[in-house]
Amino acid sequence: MILCDRLTKVYNGIPAVDDLCLEIPAGEVFGLLGPNGAGKSTTILMLVGLIRPTSGACSIGGIEVAAHPIEVKRKIGYMPEDVGFYADRTAAENLDYAARFYGLAEVERKRRVGDLLALVGLDGVGTTVGGYSKGMRQRLGLARALVNDPEVVILDEPTANLDPRGVLDYRRIVRDLAGRGTTVLVSSHILSEVSKVCTSVGILARGRLVASGDREVLSRAAMQDRVTIDVETGNPMPRFASPEILSAEFSQDACSARIVAESDISTLIAKTLYTEGILLRRLAVEKPDMEDILLSYYTEGTA
């Protein structure tokens, strides 16, 4: 659904996005992660047709953005990081204004605006947007991104200003979208948010995609095919015989061990201990959390 083919954007001789190749299948909830200045927002701006690539191309639904921006804009819903509205108008008026650009009839606009305001919990708020909190604006931004019932939703830092209730609503909305087959691209630096709603992630560093795939693939890659297993037993444990084991460190009483293996051999260890009649007190496989994964890729990408 979303395709970036050697996408490059250079500002004053410095590449903000550098030869980016990315493919997001339809129905995927894709998280675009990266530190500040990694090129996430620039990539998104090229995807929504606000800036033209220096070279390369991107397309949405098979339509090249730079060549046919209007057609692409009709298919997508976009919420920028710094979401802005007309402060002297109400939420309904702001949404209605946005809906008019998609050729919706007045009756349809009214219905859609009412539904969306209810969806983001802003129904019944009659004040102008100038009096809204940042969180309320963020909710309204999400509603506006959905005003045309888009095939692709692009959200730039969608939970930056949301309160816990807002975050829960946001997750519910994204899951609903995914359930309906909508492709969602979420750019965020809040890693826990990405890991909670995204089915796959891509990591950008210095304008380059340094890794992409589902969480498991990234975890394995980040661990460079190494898994660390911590074992604690009630009585001394034997030495484990497996070609997968790269190294093993045992305590003096042999009641605790730290084993590094090429893959997760925790089941084999548990079975061995059970067979030997050794009481297992703790068996923990150390998997990196998203933060660790991300940091390892950032380090790799900026090295």
């Binding site: 921006p69 804009k73 920028p80 710094d82």
Partner: peptide, 14 residues
């Protein structure tokens, strides 16, 4: 200043 320009240009308008 109100950050609405980016949103406006993201609508299907030239």
């Amino acid at each position: 200043e109100s950050k609405s320009l980016k949103s406006l240009l993201a609508y299907p308008v030239f």
